[in-house]
């Protein structure tokens, strides 16, 4: 089976600072991979590389078996096939929820206005946000904004979703509603790469957990193995710190 996404020896440096070194990763269709690791370990950078928001310095990234990082592929075409949701709610503040959602379908994918609206309404209904369709983002709670961001990313029917710490800017009581949405996507069979600080969530939802340390995937395996029986001293240390902070 061709992996949905494949990273081969990916290297990324900002100026002299190497942020990803020889990262190899395979994500199969319908698989959910969680990236964990301390702040600055390179989780966000990895996701942005897959989305081609940052250029890699060496190695290859493949999507559905095709190399997307050799410069011959239009990044806009690649981005149209995946959705990404960031930590800060990056909704467009001058547009209503509806306009946020139908922007890409209508202006990038050429879907007609009426069809895009229908799809938006359907998704909003599914996520319990239909009554907010004409609202502006700054009138929504953080959790609602983040769910709208998920809907916006889903509106173009992506085959892959990337999540970058989507709950870390939320009040604790709003975290569950957003994580619930992601769990729902897993049940629908969505392929996902999720950078997260929520270890409990990673344990529940991940098929595979990767521990990143200074730009290297130090340890990788099913959640039971990573969380119950980590092999690397660094992984144990990281999980211990998380546990001490009461977040596992």
């Amino acid at each position: 089976m061709t992996p949905k996404v494949e990273l081969r020896n990916v290297v990324k440096a900002f100026d002299d600072k190497v942020v990803l070194r020889d990262v190899d990763l395979e994500v199969d269709p319908h698989e959910v991979v969680c990236l964990i690791g301390s702040s600055g370990s390179g989780k966000s950078t990895l996701l942005k590389c897959v989305n081609l928001l940052v250029d890699i310095d060496d190695g290859d990234i493949l999507l559905d078996g095709n190399v997307i990082t050799d410069g011959s592929v239009n990044p806009n075409d690649v981005r149209q096939k995946m959705g990404i949701v960031f930590q800060a709610f990056n909704l467009f503040p001058h547009m209503t929820v509806l306009d946020n959602i139908i922007l890409a379908p209508t202006k990038v994918h050429g879907v007609d206005q009426a069809a895009a609206r229908d799809r938006a309404a359907e998704l909003l209904e599914q996520f319990g946000l239909l009554d907010k369709i004409e609202e502006y983002p700054d009138r929504l709670s953080g959790g609602q904004q983040q769910r709208v961001a998920v809907v916006r990313a889903l509106a173009t029917r992506p085959g892959l979703m990337l999540f970058d710490e989507v709950t870390s800017a939320l009040d604790p009581e709003l975290v569950a509603e957003v994580l619930g949405v992601i769990k729902g996507l897993k049940e629908d069979g969505m392929t996902m790469i999720i950078a997260t600080h929520e270890m409990g969530f990673a344990r529940d939802v991940a098929d595979e957990v990767c521990f990143l340390d200074s730009g290297v995937i130090l340890e990788q395996g099913p959640p039971q193995q990573i969380f119950k029986n980590p092999q690397q001293a660094r992984t144990r240390q990281f999980l211990q710190r998380i546990m001490d902070a009461g977040r596992l």
């Binding site: 806009n76 981005r79 890409a104 916006r152």
Partner: peptide, 13 residues
């Protein structure tokens, strides 16, 4: 800058 980045991430030129 994040506004530009999210717009680009949606595939907008």
């Amino acid at each position: 800058e994040s506004q530009r980045m999210s717009a680009r991430s949606l595939g907008l030129t």
